[in-house]
Design a protein around this nucleic acid. Structure first.
Length: 111
DNA sequence: TGATTGACCAACT
DNA sequence: CAGTTGGCCAATC
């Protein structure tokens, strides 16, 4: 499958390591990979992840405000919110409550 | 093959 | 204070 690691392939690896009930951000992942300004590419990689949604918990990745920016990409409306709430993450108005408590920073956790 | 775009972020005007 | 721009990588048109 993966013979050479690219940026977005590394994104998948990190996203798959997000623990249950935790969430992370595009910027944090990009920063962890050493690309501080490549948060857009993380989102773009997630867009492609719909082919591997079974392995990639894309619903645990939100923007730095804790807002479910990509919820509409889950083929519906509040699918992403339902998935998060199912893991104990409270979501209101497309925004994660106590986002800092659920935030999982790969830089600090994996380092 | 050149140009455009994308689930973002931060700085600048 | 709000709108614009630069930045990064890969894919699509």
């Amino acid at each position: 499958m993966k013979q050479s690691f690219s940026f977005y392939e590394s994104v998948y690896e990190v996203v798959k390591k997000i623990p249950y009930g935790r969430v992370s951000t595009y910027g944090a992942i990009a920063n962890y990979l050493g690309l501080k300004s490549s948060a857009r590419m993380v989102g773009w990689a997630m867009n492609k992840s719909h082919y591997n949604l079974d392995k990639i918990p894309a619903h645990r990745v939100v923007n730095r405000n804790g807002v479910l920016t990509g919820k509409h990409n889950f083929g519906g409306q509040n699918i992403m919110q339902q998935l998060l709430e199912n893991e104990g993450v409270i979501v209101e108005n497309d925004m994660i409550i106590n986002f800092e408590e659920h935030f999982w920073n790969p830089i600090e956790e994996l380092d």
